[in-house]
Nucleic acid binder design. Structure first.
Length: 332
DNA sequence: ACACGTAGAGAACTGGT
DNA sequence: ACCAGCACTCTACGTGT
């Protein structure tokens, strides 16, 4: 067994792919006889004593295949695995139409049988309360994400977070909707497309139906902080430098690279003087660009940058002054 | 037209009870 | 769980160049 593993590893390292050479070198642990690899069921079998040395070896080949000679038309053998479904999308689905693979209608006897199969299939898919909980929650996340126009990436992230909450037993004593909403909120922030709690709350189904929207937002807020703490997650503040190119791309300056470099210097000095913490990264980026244009004698208005960065001129004013002050402290 | 400053309100976070 | 306090950002407005 170990010899096979070592061998496989060695092959991976050398990039060797020929299975024939691999088979020739392997020996049976029991009798020392030659091993044969059966491609059809993935077993390594001793040709002398018949011992199955290793079974269910992983097929690392491509999961697509093409049905004609050209390799262009590759066909998947199924949808990719997704965290947004409680069974990761791996379960069997029985169609609702009472027709066979040829499109013919089923006999009444068959219809009754398929109906029973559907029922049991559904029961097995959500066999315990945890599964049902997960199914419900992921459905809610999907619904809210689509209502808010959030990307699939956010949905996926929220689903993973919810799974972790379930694993760590953080749901107990909290509503499924509350935790699902908190996960979506966290995911939207993690994926750099943040939505405020007040945006998310109206599309969630937390609390009573009387439209009491005021008290429970703080509940989601608390749940959010709770799961962040328990899962040891830190929503890291985005690096202001990430916004520089985006903001600069539509602004007319003589030398963009020069402005960007200066802006980066200003940000670095601001970080050194610790005037950056707690401030929104976009406003820091916008302010650093404005500061850079001033230092380089380029004529760009606050209004122009404000428009591109989606930050008000007031904020740019407040930020760039203290950033330039920090810049002067460090540089001179 | 632009830069700058101020006031008041709102959102997010933190810490105390 | 609740609340008060805090820093930040926003809108709206007035003033000076």
């Amino acid at each position: 067994m170990t010899s096979i593993r070592k061998q496989t590893k060695a092959n991976e390292e050398t990039g060797e792919k020929d299975t024939a050479t691999r088979d020739a070198r392997q020996e049976c642990d029991e009798c020392g006889g030659d091993l044969k690899h059966d491609e059809s069921d993935g077993e390594y079998v001793c040709t002398d004593c018949g011992l199955v040395v290793e079974e269910e070896t992983i097929d690392r080949g491509p999961e697509w295949r093409s049905f004609n000679d050209s390799q262009d038309e590759k066909s998947r053998v199924g949808a990719p695995v997704t965290n947004t479904m409680h069974d990761k999308g791996l379960s069997t689905q029985i169609g609702w139409q009472n027709k066979d693979s040829h499109g013919n209608r089923l006999s009444s006897k068959k219809r009754a049988q398929v109906q029973r199969l559907r029922k049991w299939n559904k029961r097995f898919q959500t066999k315990d309360s945890k599964e049902r909980n997960l199914k419900h929650a992921l459905g809610e996340i999907k619904r809210m994400a689509s209502a808010l126009g959030l990307s699939e990436q956010v949905e996926e992230t929220a689903s993973v977070l919810y799974r972790r909450c379930l694993d760590e037993d953080l749901i107990r004593g909290r509503s499924v909707e509350g935790v699902a909403t908190a996960c979506l909120y966290a995911a939207s922030r993690q994926c750099n497309t943040p939505r405020s709690l007040d945006e998310i709350y109206p599309v969630s189904r937390i609390g009573d139906a009387s439209g009491n929207t005021h008290q429970s937002t703080s509940g989601v807020d608390r749940t959010y902080r709770y799961i962040m703490r328990e899962l040891n997650l830190k929503i890291k503040p985005t690096d202001p430098r990430d916004f520089l190119n985006r903001i600069l791309s539509d602004i007319d300056v003589d030398d963009k690279q020069k402005v960007r470099k200066k802006a980066e210097e200003i940000i670095a000095d601001a970080e050194e003087e610790n005037v950056h913490s707690g401030k929104s990264p976009v406003s820091l980026a916008a302010a650093s660009i404005y500061g850079a244009t001033l230092l380089l004698n380029q004529k760009v208005t606050q209004k122009r940058i404000s428009k591109e960065a989606d930050v008000t001129t007031v904020t740019i004013r407040n930020r760039y002054q203290e950033m330039l002050q920090a810049y002067e402290e460090v540089e001179f």
